[in-house]
């Protein structure tokens, strides 16, 4: 690890003024589970590191009647995993969190860090995109709200400016009869980065058997988390049977853009996109139906 100067701001304002001052030469450190590894490998060599873990006001989640869930960027993954309220109202989020890293990592890694590092394999992103979540980005000049779907621009790249901080994630309340499932596929099973990650969110109409809305979001097998919109399109408004699910899964696989890597060849990963998409769609449909 190269030499760097370390700051520990106590307020958001303090953090923002440091970010304005050091801009590109600084990195924000929340849990550090990505950043420290990258620094040790000299993949990033910031001159300044701004450790925000001390800004306790950013560690929260709460429910707003009109706007759903708000999660502070410093909320760690273990908190999301173990919250009874989230388990009740946003079951799909603890379901994602359980598949994230190891318990030790989940205790430290934060939702903000996972999103801002923007690894294609970031586990929190696909489901949050499926839920139409938005990110609140603030700088000294003010704030803006960006849909997470538009937040990621490539591997490790986001729309976040060097002087901005992602402070909150806003997740709208899912409509009734909705259920979501995320599944990651790995090469070993247990405490690894995803080789394929697929989140799906399915909503049924209240009267008939039709699927009124569906989201399929791919992670890892794309440069940045991405909705498989063509696959979504053939399901939306339809009566769902297994044949249609198989078809949608194949389309999602065709929409994915996996690369050859030591975790698997592109062909294999594309085929796994099909299998996993099929499985998460089946599970989500089964869940919504049994809930009705």
């Amino acid at each position: 690890m190269g030499p760097f100067e370390y700051f520990e701001p106590e307020t958001v304002e303090e953090a923002l003024s440091l970010l304005r001052k050091y801009s590109d030469t600084a990195k924000v450190c929340a849990g550090g589970t990505d950043l420290v590894v990258r620094m040790r490998k000299h993949l990033v060599n910031p001159q300044f590191v701004i450790g925000i873990a001390g800004i306790r006001e950013l560690d929260y989640f709460r429910f707003e009647d009109d706007e759903g869930l708000r999660v502070g960027c410093l909320t760690n993954i273990r908190t999301i995993e173990r919250s009874p309220q989230l388990q009740e109202r946003y079951t799909m989020l603890p379901q994602v969190a359980r598949q994230f890293g190891s318990i030790a990592i989940r205790n430290v890694a934060t939702i903000g860090g996972n999103l801002c590092n923007a690894l294609p394999s970031a586990d929190m992103a696909p489901m949050l995109i499926a839920l139409s979540a938005k990110a609140k980005l603030v700088s000294i000049d003010g704030e803006r709200i960006v849909p997470l779907e538009d937040f990621f621009t490539g591997p490790g790249k986001t729309v976040l400016r060097a002087d901005e901080l992602l402070v909150e994630v806003r997740v709208p309340t899912p409509p009734p009869h909705t259920s979501g499932v995320y599944q990651k596929y790995t090469t070993r099973g247990g405490e690894e980065l995803a080789v394929v990650g697929v989140a799906t969110l399915v909503t049924w109409g209240s009267k008939d058997e039709r699927c009124t809305d569906v989201r399929i979001v791919l992670g890892t097998v794309v440069p940045a988390p991405m909705r498989a919109k063509e696959a979504e399109a053939i399901l939306k408004g339809k009566r769902i049977d297994d044949e249609l699910i198989e078809k949608a899964a194949q389309i999602a696989a065709d929409e994915s853009r996996p690369r050859d890597s030591i975790r698997g060849s592109a062909d294999y990963r594309r085929e796994m996109v099909r299998i996993i998409t099929r499985d998460v769609l089946r599970q989500a449909f089964e869940r919504t139906q049994s809930a009705r």
Binding site: G189, G190, E192
Partner: peptide, 11 residues
């Protein structure tokens, strides 16, 4: 250990 896959207790 991210990419060298040792056996874990979960396996």
């Amino acid at each position: 250990f991210g990419n060298y896959k040792m056996v874990t207790s979960m396996n």
